[in-house]
Design a protein around this nucleic acid. Sequence first.
DNA 1: CTACGATGGAACACAACCGTTCCGTCTCAA
DNA 2: TTGAGACGGAACGGTTGTGTTCCATCGTAG
Lengths: 207, 207
Amino acid sequence: MSDATSGPDRRPAGAAVLRADLTDAIRQAALAELIDSGYARMSMDAIARRAGVGKAAIYRRWASKEPLVLEILTRLADEAVPLPDTGTLREDVEGFVRHASALRADPRTMRVLTDLTAEATRNPRLAAAMQTSAEQPRRAAGARLLHRAVDRGELPADLDTELAVDCLVGLAYLRPRTPWQPAESLDDGITPLVEVILAALAACRRR
Amino acid sequence: MSDATSGPDRRPAGAAVLRADLTDAIRQAALAELIDSGYARMSMDAIARRAGVGKAAIYRRWASKEPLVLEILTRLADEAVPLPDTGTLREDVEGFVRHASALRADPRTMRVLTDLTAEATRNPRLAAAMQTSAEQPRRAAGARLLHRAVDRGELPADLDTELAVDCLVGLAYLRPRTPWQPAESLDDGITPLVEVILAALAACRRR
DNA sequence: CTACGATGGAACACAACCGTTCCGTCTCAA
DNA sequence: TTGAGACGGAACGGTTGTGTTCCATCGTAG
């Protein structure tokens, strides 16, 4: 079948091309299903139904659920991580914490995040994608934020960057990882938390 | 059927009682399935197969998968949280961190933890059970540890306990929540982490 | 204009799971 | 000794999912 049209004069053929709008509708429906049902429970039938397409249209583009989800995850990650750069460590940290608590306030994000984290436990490809797409950009943003502070002399020159990033990310994203119950208006609690983070960062010295 | 044997002289009947060893075998098999497949994918058939019992034996004890898992979770939680009490804050914290990093080193625990966390996003009963069984005991242990330190004067009297518990639990369990990749021998990294936690705790003052 | 090929929709065969129901057997409280 | 009832095992009907295949239709590159 592969060379059915081959011959002395290969006519590369007429038209009919994957419609980009459908490709997009499928991606959107898949994300919605992922949010509603989670990775394990989401079904190709439901995606097709939701997108208003035939299942064939999906399988023409992706071999199965996994590559579809991986692509969605990668695309989501490409939406940049806003990196605060206010000129002072305190305000940068505050921006970082605010962004984290905004994540927590969004149940859709929470579901996808915890869901894929769990799934990554059993799926190495997904784990790699999560690390690349979710963890690394945030750690990188944190690291840049810290380096600037070191340059300004707001943090010790012998800062243990790895440990400091752990602390920054860990404390800022602490609550987003425990989905039990309502996103209390963290605005109240942000200032003391920033204070604590600053104290912790100052203690992250090498050796 | 409920009063088929009722009458003037209700004979409370003969014998045949749920066999405790089977009940236990089922619980064990269910936990194994939960670890291997996760909540969403685990099936009653697989549990029965694994336990070497008929499905009827399971449904005689639990109405469905949910109450079965809830019971298992509750029982696991009853295995006490070891609460270090060494007499100094530093050593208590170190014990706390060690226990957390031991959890991370155990892939079975990691899978169940992340899995049920994700599931809790969609199942309020499970969320409540997780909070009661997983979160509260650890927070309570942390709070007691902190109160002792305050009494000894190792922490300020106006300690914001809630925030401090957040920091302690958050920093100690940071890595256990991101399952990507190998449990690096945290023994190396424990001392600096303890140092950071101590600094953070000291900064958790009220107002 | 033409014909290539993607389209939505439907149906396919196959598998897994659920929760129930039926067996014939065996255990144990009364 | 008796009989209520739990036991393993098997099968049930119904539902849901997967990935494939067929169709008549329609948009479009050549």
